[in-house]
Write a protein that binds this DNA or RNA. Sequence first.
DNA 1: GTGGTCTAGACCACC
DNA 2: GTGGTCTAGACCACA
Lengths: 129, 129, 129, 129
Amino acid sequence: MYFAINSASEFPVYQQIVDQIKREIALGRLSCTDKIPTVRELAAQLIINPNTIAKAYRILEQQGIVVTRVGSGTFVSEAGSSLSQDARKTLVCGKLELAAVEAATLRISKTTVSEWFETILGKFMFREA
Amino acid sequence: MYFAINSASEFPVYQQIVDQIKREIALGRLSCTDKIPTVRELAAQLIINPNTIAKAYRILEQQGIVVTRVGSGTFVSEAGSSLSQDARKTLVCGKLELAAVEAATLRISKTTVSEWFETILGKFMFREA
Amino acid sequence: MYFAINSASEFPVYQQIVDQIKREIALGRLSCTDKIPTVRELAAQLIINPNTIAKAYRILEQQGIVVTRVGSGTFVSEAGSSLSQDARKTLVCGKLELAAVEAATLRISKTTVSEWFETILGKFMFREA
Amino acid sequence: MYFAINSASEFPVYQQIVDQIKREIALGRLSCTDKIPTVRELAAQLIINPNTIAKAYRILEQQGIVVTRVGSGTFVSEAGSSLSQDARKTLVCGKLELAAVEAATLRISKTTVSEWFETILGKFMFREA
DNA sequence: GTGGTCTAGACCACC
DNA sequence: GTGGTCTAGACCACA
């Protein structure tokens, strides 16, 4: 796994790690029960404070995306999210709305945005719960 | 116009104001050359420091979304963004990807996300540059 | 780096800071990835409120001239502007026109202005995008 | 004379009027001893508060660019600026520097800026003092 | 220790 | 009356 951390980004480093691990999973490059790097390994690789990595893993664990087994490491969780269908829709639609508003504000045509989104969806693996 | 500010949100107050004004415009509830509330009006209504409102308006102005005329107020701009086509695509696709990853992580089917997005797009007014 | 702030100037303090940092970069005295003084350092040195320095840095960041990394400081950016070619030409030609009108008004000969400008251009480092 | 006032500009209205009258003179569209519109006329034409026009004329008079003869109106002055050669150079070179720094910052090549400036200079009438 | 957010309040420029 | 500038100071997020 190669992560690209942009310390100049508007997003904090721990958030970028969370997003990129989620992305690896969505892309199918990380599967259920796969082991993800230890905090120390990733910290060494990215030349980042281990506390920052630990914070990212803690968030992923709270969201049910990974599980940590003391003594053996951190693994991609098999279980789906524990959130209700409504809560999920709110989360996803909130982000979709922000993207749509951004596109409308930048005067991009509806068909163009729609095409861009289909292309992006094609890159990820979607499996129903 | 009624804005809902959530001071416990993960997003700062000024960002919420920026997003909600962009949304009003994208929804067509605010049109070109319409006047938006004065800094002091909105500050009084939301019980927020005027500087915070002013910061939101400044950001909107820098993005070319509103224009301010000292002495008369702040108005929705007619002009489009001055960003290059590439910069726009990067901005929008970044947000679309985050939404797509979120959906995949939450195990929502591709067709469902796609439908949600089409519904959302239908709510907004898109006009090409 | 020594900045000269003139609080009696027609230009606001934060603008003077923005202009002087741009100038340092254009002169080649600040290079890509160089660290510029921290907000608190510069505030202490110039005896100015830190918020005023922060405002200047925020503007520089919005123009893509510096990047800030919370926790480590503010650095000169490597990336170029994201403005369209037209927007750039409008910005620069607007300033050139004002200078030309000023020269004509003050009855300075065209060749003199031209020579002055060439001398000034010689002081700065120009690198195409 | 037709002035284009942009009330959304970063420059105040009175400044725009000052600049545009200087520009008309530099373009040769207003000559020495020509009468410029009365405050009331211009205020009516631009739909602007007469005080704003009066402020612009006051500034032009202070700079020796127009003279007001009570009872007959305001006229383009024949006399040149009363400023010393050094003061003039400082004024003009300050503006040229700002334009050069802007160009360098926007990564425009030196030859391009130089060409733009020559084109602009060609539009104006320069007469030595 | 870095910058970011928000508040409170004074003063100013513009119209 | 409009927004803009600047100050002073508290508190927070990030690394």
